[in-house]
Design a protein around this nucleic acid. Structure first.
Length: 491
DNA sequence: CGTCTCACG
DNA sequence: ACGTACGTGAGACGT
């Protein structure tokens, strides 16, 4: 199969390619070309999270490529996907190419130190674990671990899985009130996870030539329209735990005189929900400088905002998150550690105050049933073939996807648009700053210090203006000497 | 190679 | 009575 075919369409010369970014990487396409049509990306948009539907025609023959182009071009137009294809995904492919080529600098010495520290902690934990368990065993083996916990120590089984008894975090946390072993296991797990997945693995991926990490951002993989990252995955670098955070210190600017600048959307999915559902109260929650979760708690529990306590705010926050995933009372109950009835009551109160949110979510499920797919604000589709399945589990799963996909997908559309816009501005303003990473709602740049101010302003403006919603999109910008120690840049 | 677990948004 | 919160990628284990 040829990876590149030139054709004439309406007098214009068009380069039909399969996976432009890969072709540029392997040098088969040497530079940006004005009229490129990537059938790989077109297929991604058209198949809407259903796998590759039109590819057989592509693989069949080179002649099929012209035919494929005609079909895809027509379908993109019919499905109103031309904006996403021509103005977002195609230009984004070049932005991602540049970003991957630029790479991210890693301070390997920082990780070497961490590795040593981790080693001794793991050794200590192993010693205690074996002593309490009464025998050495492989802590990384769920099978051996469950023998120790549930047979030798006779701890109660919290959750069963296909292969026996679950020993996951939720289970071990529950068991830790009854025995000292589970808490130690949790600590051991955290250490060995961080060590094997990040501390020891990242340095091996540093490119010998550039001394940087060059991840690949997959533009046509995620079913909702998000990007994903591999080799390494830069989108799951630890941040939640204190020890994990120290790994971020190893992500550093290209050189002295530069800093990392990070800009992230605040609560973008909730803001999108407010816009899509057109719910007056949720829109109010998103306006001003207020705290969305506090506002929500104030409504739900019917108290003024200054009387919202931590528990109330926490509950509201969890519901706000859960709503985006299509969560039910059972899961909320588990999450908040309250009874199912209390959880039901919370959800009831939530929808009473945000009535149009419920209408919107029900509407999305209905739309999926009628059309077989849901869409983002920009028309990206997600097909949900199980939405009318007789198997309740599969059907309900599809319903949750119908709720989540428009929000997660619209957020993905928006940050992709922002990336293209920011990238154009960098060129136009002749800036030396470089886009180096994206983490779903965050963009990270390497910035010479004398460009910090202008970049903070430029990035914030472009990201906030990427789409005009009926509520503001808020972006906060931070900068610093590594990916952990960053301070807010006011603009 | 499937399963489990867990890192992130 | 059932299962029960979306989307990813990666490492370790064990068949």
């Amino acid at each position: 199969m040829k990876s590149r075919v030139e054709i004439k369409d309406e007098g214009k010369s068009i380069d039909i390619v399969y996976d432009l970014k890969s072709l540029r990487k392997s040098g088969q396409v040497s530079e940006k070309h004005k009229n490129v049509f990537d059938v790989f990306l077109a297929d991604y948009l058209l198949s809407g999270g259903q796998g590759q539907y039109y590819m057989p025609a592509l693989r069949a023959s080179d002649e099929g490529m012209r035919e494929l182009y005609d079909i895809q071009k027509r379908l993109l137009k019919e499905q109103k996907l031309d904006y996403l294809f021509y103005d977002v995904e195609m230009p984004l492919s070049d932005v991602l190419f540049e970003m991957e080529a630029s790479g991210v600098k890693l301070d390997v010495d920082v990780l070497k130190e961490l590795s040593k520290e981790c080693d001794s902690k793991i050794a200590e934990l192993e010693k205690s674990l074996y002593k309490i368990a009464g025998t050495p065993f492989n802590v990384n083996s769920p099978k051996q671990l469950s023998e120790i916990l549930f047979e030798r120590l006779k701890l109660p089984v919290v959750k069963k899985i296909k292969t026996g008894y679950s020993t996951n975090e939720e289970v071990l946390t529950k068991l830790s009130s009854q025995h000292p072993l589970p808490a130690l296991i949790l600590e051991y797990r955290q250490m060995s996870k961080l060590k094997s997945t990040y501390i020891d693995a990242l340095p091996l991926l540093v490119d010998a030539k550039t001394q940087r990490l060059h991840a690949t951002f997959n533009q046509a993989g995620a079913e909702t329209g998000r990007l994903s990252s591999n080799n390494p995955n830069l989108q799951n670098i630890p941040v939640r735990t204190e020890f994990g955070q120290r790994i971020r210190k190893a992500f550093v600017p290209y050189s002295k005189g530069h800093e990392l600048l990070s800009a992230d959307y605040s609560q973008i999915e909730l803001r999108i929900l407010a816009h899509l559902a057109n719910d007056d109260e949720l829109k109010n929650a998103c306006r001003g400088d207020g705290d969305i979760h506090r506002y929500t708690a104030s409504l739900m529990f019917d108290v003024p905002e200054n009387k919202v306590d931590d528990k109330m705010r926490y509950a509201a926050k969890r519901i706000n998150f859960g709503i985006v995933y299509g969560m039910g009372a059972f899961s909320l109950a588990k999450d908040l550690d309250v009874s199912i009835n209390e959880a039901k009551d919370f959800i009831e109160k939530y929808f009473l105050r945000y009535p149009k949110v419920r209408q919107f979510l029900d509407g999305e499920i209905q739309k999926a049933r009628d059309l077989g797919y849901v869409t983002t604000l920009f028309g990206r589709r997600r097909y949900l073939p199980d939405i009318n399945n007789r198997n309740m589990g599969l059907r309900q799963f599809a319903e949750r996807q119908a709720i989540n996909a428009p929000m997660q997908g619209t957020a993905a559309d928006i940050i992709k648009i922002a990336m293209v816009k920011v990238s154009k501005r960098l060129i136009k303003e002749k800036l030396s700053s470089t886009m180096i990473m994206t983490v779903h709602d965050e963009l990270v740049f390497d910035v010479p210090k004398d460009e910090l101010k202008i970049m903070a302003l430029l990035v914030q403006q472009e990201m906030e203006a990427a789409m005009d919603l009926s509520v503001p999109m808020k972006v906060s910008v931070k900068a610093g000497n590594n990916w952990l120690e960053m301070e807010k840049v006011h603009s």
